[in-house]
Simulated assay, not measured.
Amino acid sequence: MKDIDKALNVEARSGLPDDLLALLRKFPRDQWANDPSLHGLAEGWLQRHDLFRELSVLIGGMTTDLREGRTSPAAFPPLFQRRMGLLLGELDGHHRVEDEYYFPSFAAAAPKLQKGFDILDNDHAVIHGAIDRLGTASRELIAALSGEVSGRDGDALRVAERIAGEIEGFDRTLLRHLWDEEDLIIPLILERTRDDPEFG
């Protein structure tokens, strides 16, 4: 974890500092879809982030349906476990590749953005702490639901309420991180691939 200003922590900030957004002003979001360089790495990055967003929304919706009685305790666990396992596993793998390869190589190519990569690196540490908490809460929920299905008092509603809070906080943190990461990295890729199509 990098040492960054507390105001730049992913759970506190509302966006990246202005001094890191010069390339975003040159390559604004509303023009990305029409940029001829938006293929390969940049397009794959955005698709991966969209998968994370989609899974996060689906999981939150499933948990709400369970709490409000639209999904039975017996039907909930299999799909929930698959989706949660996919989200947390894919996030972990994605972050490992970023931390070990992409962030160092991008920072070397654009030293002025080093502070941004330090911020993103710190985000990963925060998110992985949240992943651990979410994984623990998920296992507790499945155990409680198992008790309810088998006739034991698993207090599933109480656990579902708690995991709903964990998911809501996780979503806010994850979405802030994904948005800021895109603001820093996609414009950098778009700029660099004009000069070097193999960049990244």
Rank of each mutant, 00 (worst) to 15 (best):
Ile59Arg: 08
Lys2Met: 13
Ala156His: 12
Leu86Met: 13
Leu91Ile: 08
Ala22Ile: 09
Leu175Phe: 15
Ala42Asp: 11
Ser150Ile: 10
Ala164Leu: 07
Ser150His: 10
Leu188Lys: 11
Asp171Gly: 04
Glu68Ala: 04
Phe103Lys: 00
Thr136Leu: 11
Glu148Asn: 10
Asp121Glu: 11
Asp99Met: 07
Leu38Asp: 05
Glu168Leu: 10
Lys26Leu: 15
Arg82Leu: 14
Pro73His: 05
Ile163Tyr: 01
Leu145Glu: 11
His39Pro: 00
Leu58Glu: 14
Gly116Cys: 10
Val57Leu: 12
Arg133Pro: 00
Gln114Glu: 15
Ala144Gln: 02
Val10Ile: 12
Ala12Phe: 07
Asp132Met: 07
His177Ser: 07
Phe52Tyr: 09
Gly85Trp: 07
Gln114Ser: 15
Phe106Pro: 01
Ile189Val: 15
Gly151Ser: 10
Arg152Asn: 10
Arg176Asp: 01
Gly60Ile: 03
Leu23Cys: 04
Ile142Val: 15
Leu157His: 14
Glu181Phe: 05
Phe199Gln: 09
Gly116Tyr: 12
Met1Pro: 11
Ala110Pro: 00
Phe106Ala: 14
Trp179His: 13
Val10Trp: 00
Leu88Phe: 08
Arg29Asn: 07
Gly135Ser: 14
His124Asn: 12
Phe106Ile: 12
Gly93Ala: 12
Ile119Val: 11
Leu55Met: 11
Arg176Met: 10
Asn34Pro: 00
Ala7His: 10
Leu58Phe: 01
Lys26Val: 13
